[in-house]
Design a binder for these strands. Sequence first.
DNA 1: TAGATTGTTAATCGATTAACAATC
DNA 2: TAGATTGTTAATCGATTAACAATC
Lengths: 213, 213
Amino acid sequence: MNKTIAPVPTIRRIPGYLHVLQEFKKQGKEFISATDIAGKLDLKPIQVRKDMAFTGIIGKPRVGYQVENLMESIRSFLDWNHQTPAVLMGAGALGSALLGYKNFEEHGIRIVAAFDEDKAKIGKKIHGREVFSIERVKDMVIKHEVIMGIITVPPEGAQRAADSLLNAGVKGIWNFSPQKVEVPEHVIVQHEDLSSSLAVLSVRLKGGEAEET
Amino acid sequence: MNKTIAPVPTIRRIPGYLHVLQEFKKQGKEFISATDIAGKLDLKPIQVRKDMAFTGIIGKPRVGYQVENLMESIRSFLDWNHQTPAVLMGAGALGSALLGYKNFEEHGIRIVAAFDEDKAKIGKKIHGREVFSIERVKDMVIKHEVIMGIITVPPEGAQRAADSLLNAGVKGIWNFSPQKVEVPEHVIVQHEDLSSSLAVLSVRLKGGEAEET
DNA sequence: TAGATTGTTAATCGATTAACAATC
DNA sequence: TAGATTGTTAATCGATTAACAATC
């Protein structure tokens, strides 16, 4: 039963489970227990079982979960069983890095095009994807039925990039710029916040030690 | 009083406060209330006040916090009031992007050198930092009293990069590769996990809507 | 002084963990 | 069958939120 919406911490752990499952699958394992998974990821088995329940998977007592089956449940839970078309705003260093990131296809997205304000970049191809002028955003978004936009422009341009995406009708934005962006209520923004994460590392380093995450 | 260690969610919110304070400072504001900050970041004032308490700041009832003073408290809490020397492993697209990220100095780190296995890259300069051969890691870490290593190599090389850093005596690792790395107990690893964050976005998009973070 | 905002103590909420019956 | 592992219900833990006295 996955009537209830999964807690965010659960959602954040789930890609890790998928990764572990891929390894087990390579090893030819057919079944896997929550204990096996927990061991690999330094978690408690009970937490893994609880998380799994949210994906809708049903395990076999004494045996565990069927690997293929569980991967399928997870992919469907994350909506990663098909590739959501995405566009990328800002073909700078970070943007190029993301364009070159092979594994996005396994993570349910496909970047179909990149856009940049810099005329010098327009028309070039980066890892097989063409860089277009900003004016083309709307037309490309419509043509490829793009749902998601990724922002990798410098902070000053973040809101402008977001506005282009919104105007084109994108439903979700993955924002890698340190600048927060304003969007209408129905649009979902995920802010990739490096400074939060660096803060945790800094405090743990300062404190001699501290906790995970 | 900040006897107790701050919860991780608190630590993660704190850089956002610093960012808002910088804006207020630019506007010449001398005092700021928890309500002002909360408004900017879509948080509850009570949460801001609770978080602030962990930084050790003392506010004035009816007036709020002194902006300069609060920034100082936050920087000291995060250990961002001086620049921790860091090295970067992997001068690829992502590594170059980080080398070009101007704001690290405000985030308490200074990347002093980059390293790469690719001979073609060695000796080049990226955003003013030289790329060295991997053999030089230990010697440079010692010379610059480096505490932190940043991993931006492809997943296959992540453990190798970590091992070089560990061998050189680094205390903390900021790992941008999707591959987890094994380290001795006393070393702190912060895993920058794009897939977790993409998972949250995917689920929220799928579900029509969902919650923050 | 009156009123706004802090800091603290208590209440609530939600996630994690534990206990255990069901089951292959 | 006996034993291991699931799924569920209950207990615990920790973070968020509320209430309110202190105070400038």
